[in-house]
Amino acid sequence: MPDYLVLAAAAFGAGTLNTVAGGGTFLTFPALVYTGVPVVAANATSAVAVFPGYLGGAAGFYREIAAFDRRRLVKITAWTAAGGLIGSLLLLVSSNAAFAAVVPFLLALATLTFAFGERLQGWARRRGGGAADSPVSALLVAIYGGYFNGGLGIVLLALFALWGMRDLNVMNGLKTGLSFVLSAISVATFALAGLVAWPQAAVMMVAATLGGYAGAPLARALPRQVVRAVVIAVGSAMSLIFFARLLG
């Protein structure tokens, strides 16, 4: 019971963080590892836990997604789906020892991406200038998302800016929709492979959904910089903890 309380609290916090600013993986993944779930299964279960939030977000941006050029949307979605499948399959062939060795670096990368995401997007906008969609860049980002979901939203926004997109609402809608597609493929792959710890996932899905709902008024009340500081602090702490585990 104490383990499930920890998981529920982490998932509720993750749902809230994802609604407010992103970074929910920094809570769900470490909580699963802390409660004894092997790292590969913990990563898969974490992806399942936050999955419902993407569907709600995609529904909320339905108008922006529906207004997007249909042929372009199909192409980008296909690249994302392919990359998500490749990333998910890479996780299936990763041993717990191998994945544990790269997790600290992935967490640190996600934290740095979140911390410098706005600068990254600004740099991408300056370099973009209406650049054409790149299948290779979309594929690489999706592979990362299928393998380890942390910081995916920020990376996607930077990618869209590099492609020359400017409308933030359209970019957020596309980001949420693609995250849902990618996560759906990952969840299906992990489920079929038997990687998901379903009792833990079920509790966390409910808690994450409630946390996402609770995050909306919190997002309106809290200063953005305060939320960003909390996410960066959590991500940094988790990165250090997993580096310590690796070295210990």
Rank of each mutant, 00 (worst) to 15 (best):
I76Q: 14
G87P: 10
D133F: 02
N96L: 00
I86N: 05
A161Y: 13
Q121E: 15
Q121M: 09
A98I: 07
A161T: 08
E118I: 08
R127L: 07
L168D: 12
T111H: 14
D69H: 09
A98C: 06
T77P: 03
Y147L: 07
V103F: 00
L140V: 13
I65V: 14
W123L: 12
S94L: 03
L156A: 04
D133K: 08
L85S: 10
F116N: 06
L152C: 00
A138V: 11
W163V: 01
L120W: 14
I86T: 15
S88R: 08
G146C: 08
L91T: 06
Y147N: 02
L89I: 13
S137I: 11
F148I: 06
G145N: 13
A66V: 05
R125S: 04
R119V: 07
S88N: 11
L90C: 13
F148R: 06
V102F: 02
V74R: 11
A110W: 08
F105N: 06
I65D: 09
L92K: 04
L89P: 09
I76Y: 09
A101G: 00
A97L: 10
F105W: 07
V74S: 07
V103Q: 01
I65F: 11
G84V: 04
D167I: 15
A124L: 10
A131H: 10
L90A: 10
G146Y: 04
E118S: 13
R70P: 00
G150L: 15
S95L: 03
Y62N: 03
L106V: 09
A108K: 01
N149A: 05
G129N: 09
F160M: 08
L109N: 15
K75A: 15
R70V: 04
V93C: 10
F61T: 02
V136R: 15
Y147H: 00
W163I: 03
N96K: 00
N96T: 08
V102D: 00
R119I: 06
A97I: 05
P104C: 01
V102I: 15
T77K: 06
V102R: 01
G129V: 11
G128A: 08
R127V: 11
G117P: 06
R70Y: 14
A132P: 05
V74F: 11
S88Y: 13
V102W: 00
I86M: 02
R126K: 12
G130P: 10
A108R: 03
F114L: 04
G83T: 07
A82W: 00
I143Y: 00
D69W: 13
L90T: 12
N96G: 11
F160L: 10
I65E: 06
G153F: 02
G87H: 14
L112N: 01
A97C: 04
G145D: 13
R166E: 15
P135G: 09
G128W: 13
A110T: 15
S94D: 02
